[in-house]
Design a binder for these strands. Sequence first.
DNA 1: AACCCGGGGCA
DNA 2: TGCCCAGGGTT
Length: 377
Amino acid sequence: MIRALFMSRFTIALDKTRNAYKFFSESLLGWDEHIDRGMPWQGEKDPYKIWLSEILLQQTRVQQGLSYYLNFVEAYPTVQDLAKAEDDEVFRLWQGLGYYSRCRNLLHTARFITNELDGVFPHSYDELLKLKGIGTYTAAAISSFAFGDLRPVIDGNVLRVISRFFGIEDPIDTKSGRNAISKLTKSCIEITDNSAAYNQAIMNFGAIQCTPKFPKCSNCPLVNYCKAYQLNLVSQIPIKSKKIKKRERYFVYFNIESNEHILIKKRTDRDIWQNLYELPMTELSTPFRNLESISENWAIPIRKELIESLNISTTFKQNLTHQKIIATYVDISLIESNELATKPYFWVSKSELDQYAFPKIILDFLKVRARQLGISY
DNA sequence: AACCCGGGGCA
DNA sequence: TGCCCAGGGTT
């Protein structure tokens, strides 16, 4: 008797949960039917193009990544084309998108697939996961979109939509929160028979309907069973426990021009903007005061005797995820042009600057400088 | 688990 | 300003 009662209650609870998964998945698929975001990779089956789009879109809004995707597909229609491209050329195409280690990993994996895997993409989630630049999200995306695996993706959209609908109050940046969401996504996708459509739908839904701020609950097809809505926690969920702290860095850049050439170097340190180019620079531990105070940190690869004038030009700021860069630019004119550049530094004709990838804070300066000179970089 | 890696858009 | 974005690598 007691056992029967227990069994019956258990069954009802399970059935209610299962209905919740079913309602969730089917509502999403229904909602997504009339959504067209004009994304050229939608419905794409070529794993190379799917991979390319997913790398470009990591931590990047679709609208921002779209033009980059079109440029890359045109320049490198196949993984072999990308594999044989010059590093600098690919980084130049990536310029402005940020998180440049993605570009380095992209090139590494393109060459690995071309040279070691005979140009064939791995078909399984586990094999995809071994590739550089491919983590759990991207492996799930490629295996579901290209190969039809029943594999749920978990990106920022999914974390938000799932945690809201099922009322997950554990922080999503903790193990318990991630585990809870991971279990739910598996249950929801298993209800469906089209994982590609499901994954597409939930990400579209997060981007358009269940947005981070001001989600459109008033016309949401899921609102009646949305736990966060019932608890009035929509604006609180998803909950994050960590808060990033930002440090300030003070850069001094030297714009050394000579005979229509400019002195640059490549950034090679394990630091921000690795593989990009920049002007000669020194970093200060305190904010820039004046030119005299930096003479001890002298980092200009030019003999002082050749310097005719040295003037503070402009200051630019740039906000990164964990750093705030404050860069002071110094214009330097030389008495005589064409001192031989040493070591990592080299002269570049101003007309050829567009062959190199620069961080935004350098581009901002070059743009202003070009306007001063009446030319365009 | 904590930290690092850009740049754009938005309120 | 602070937050978020079709995350991943390193320690």
